[in-house]
Design a binder for these strands. Structure first.
Lengths: 108, 108
DNA sequence: TCCATGATTCGATGATTATAGAAATATCGA
DNA sequence: TCGATATTTCTATAATCATCGAATCATGGA
């Protein structure tokens, strides 16, 4: 996971609607959510959402599969893992800013 | 740390020169680095770097202090911690994509 | 085949971001 | 005070990004 891919991922999440969409997909779990359901939940036009989903997809943060007429999007946990790993290893002075929440979860 | 601040932080890091600058600052440690030294290391004009540092600063990811004629920038580990915490808690389905690297570091 | 549905692509527009030289500001030493 | 140094602010320009209606594409049912 090179800096280029990291920058694409960061850029993909650095936008109100895309961050919200990704959070919804994470909540939705591996089942994912149809594009239409996402557009409804976010209250934005389908064509706008499609633009944003394309960026998340290009960054590798979401996967998509067609089920009948719907296209179902799902968060890619491995990609998110890669992003967090990069940030932790390269932007954190040897873990000195590893989130406490993660530490706690790891300990339990 | 609300979504607004998170988006600013993500956007601040989602750029080649800014990500590189932030990584250098993390490597530099709490002592930080002068703006000029950063510009040299990155090979970009001072005015361009100043623009980028302003964004990192606005996002709260770096602090600055004047020492004689130089302005020394330093990474803000607490802010980075906040960003990682948010991503882990809101974009990670209950820690299912917590980076292994963090887990290992926590265990040692 | 024809129509309705779910979604993407196209196209135009406005907004934001990146770049970098020139000018301005702040500090220090002579 | 004057000049040199370190940095930022100003200004203009180019490039990228966001929005959304209209047109298009894919699928399934009558």
């Amino acid at each position: 996971m090179g800096p280029d891919s990291i920058i694409r991922s960061l850029g993909a999440l650095a936008q109100e609607h895309r961050l919200a969409a990704f959070r919804l997909l994470v909540q939705a779990g591996p089942e994912g959510m149809a594009a239409g359901a996402l557009a409804d939940a976010l209250g934005i036009p389908a064509s706008s959402l499609s633009f944003h989903l394309a960026q998340l997809s290009h960054a590798g943060l979401v996967s998509q599969r067609r089920v009948s007429r719907s296209i179902i999007y799902a968060a890619d946990y491995a990609a998110m893992n890669g992003l967090l790993s990069y940030l932790t290893e390269n932007c954190c002075a040897g873990g000195s800013c590893a989130p406490a929440a993660t530490a706690e979860r790891m300990a339990s």
